[in-house]
Nucleic acid binder design. Structure first.
Lengths: 236, 236
DNA sequence: CGATGCTTTGAATCTCGTCAAGATGTGTGG
DNA sequence: CCACACATCTTGACGAGATTCAAAGCATCG
């Protein structure tokens, strides 16, 4: 059982510049953090492993300590939609249903704090601030899902990519316009943005040709024209 | 001030077959309903009016008593995404932010109960069951948004239409496979499914030709092959 | 019954997907 | 450290699906 919980993702990354408003631990007092801590078990996973599996019983909830993952839904015909990328500090697994309707797959090695769902829910009742945080996180998740609906419904390939870049800038620890390490594959990106790998690759090439970005190596991205990228990718 | 609140949409439609699990009033006691009722003001709107406007201050929340509406988000360039259709019994307007990020536009004439957001939130704290209902509704809204992400990311025009048909069957009061009255325009459908009006029209024609549906008049839909429609439109 | 708005259909164009090949990276064992 | 194998990424040619622009058919409502 861990003695201390990491209370802020910046503690992990050493990056103090990111503002993370939707965090499980927000404004909790020391004793409340202790109670949370005492209920958590750390879980360590390597890349490509599943933190939780679609259709498995929803018995646990998780708070990501380190690493990057994605949330995916796979249909019976094999169609795969990536619903979100998740980052340190994110909270996943809370659902009203008995089983998870999605899987969470690690993109990198990962450390996460696991809570028994029942215990976590009980604690949520005992600590109003925690309950509020969970509800804020839920609202934030919804807001991002609606953004995704918007770009999938309205935008073209290049615009969708720019949308992703902006999200990464905001949420990926350590990301700056000069250097974004893309931990996910082109396939992951495609499945997130509703595109094929080939289209992702071509759209990247086009953005590069237009001088908006450069790609020193396949998983390193530099934004050359942030205003241009923002124009294409922003949701309103 | 209204004396009684309608406690279930079936009270309105006279249709007792629809199961509405995510309803604001669920399992509230008589005195709790009274308190809710005493805070509500009925609001009557005609078609094309806005129950609430994008970017306006989020001072009220609403429970739909009768009528049909849609939730839309309009970008500065005029792109419009319909985020959802809403029906009697639905609850809209609760957000964490100061302003609404979306508008709610009536498709038909509408009656809705309006609550001051502050008063509603206070009541939510006083009545745990009400708070639970609100949170269940939120979870349901998220689940539907994720379905929409999946559809927009993975499916073709005809499949998207079938997805809509199934949703209408489930949620539109009075809808049966033999007779679905489509209250929205082709434009609304297109903006919901990420398609143009023309594509909607053509996809409908194709589904008709394939014998899956028939369209006796532009706003009346009959599902001829429910299994076929289900195969195309279901989310997993 | 005529006017207006909505819906359908047609033709050209464009974007994206599919299939296929080649290039680049990554990881492994020698 | 190199060589090889496998996975990932890129690029090309082609085709399918969706959009655009334009015009014609239908509803609906005064």
């Amino acid at each position: 059982m861990p003695r201390t919980l990491i209370t802020h993702p910046t503690d992990l990354t050493g990056n103090g510049t990111h503002t993370r408003e939707y965090v499980l631990f927000k404004e909790l007092k020391a004793d409340e953090l202790d109670r949370l801590s005492s209920l958590s078990k750390i879980k360590i996973l390597s890349e490509k492993q599943y933190l939780l599996s679609q259709y498995s019983p929803a018995l646990q909830v998780f708070n990501i300590a380190s690493g990057i993952a994605l949330i995916e839904r796979i249909a019976s015909n094999g169609d795969r939609q990536v619903l979100a990328f998740i980052f340190p500090g994110d909270f996943v697994g809370l659902t009203q249903s008995e089983h998870f309707e999605y899987g969470v797959k690690c993109i990198t090695e990962m450390q996460a704090y696991a809570f028994k769902r029942s215990e976590f829910t009980a604690l949520t009742e005992a600590i109003p601030q925690l309950k509020k945080n969970v509800s804020d996180i839920g609202a934030n998740v919804l807001a991002r899902a609606l953004d995704q609906v918007f770009i999938l419904g309205q935008k073209k390939a290049e615009e969708r990519l720019c949308f992703l870049f902006l999200q990464l800038l905001e949420r990926l620890p350590g990301a700056t316009p000069d250097y974004i390490h893309l931990p996910m594959t082109r396939q992951d990106i495609g499945d997130y943005l509703g595109l094929t790998v080939e289209t992702v690759s071509r759209a990247l090439a086009k953005l590069k040709k237009e001088g908006l970005i450069s790609i020193p190596s396949p998983h390193i991205l530099k934004i050359e024209d942030l205003d241009g990228v923002t124009d294409l990718g922003e949701v309103e």
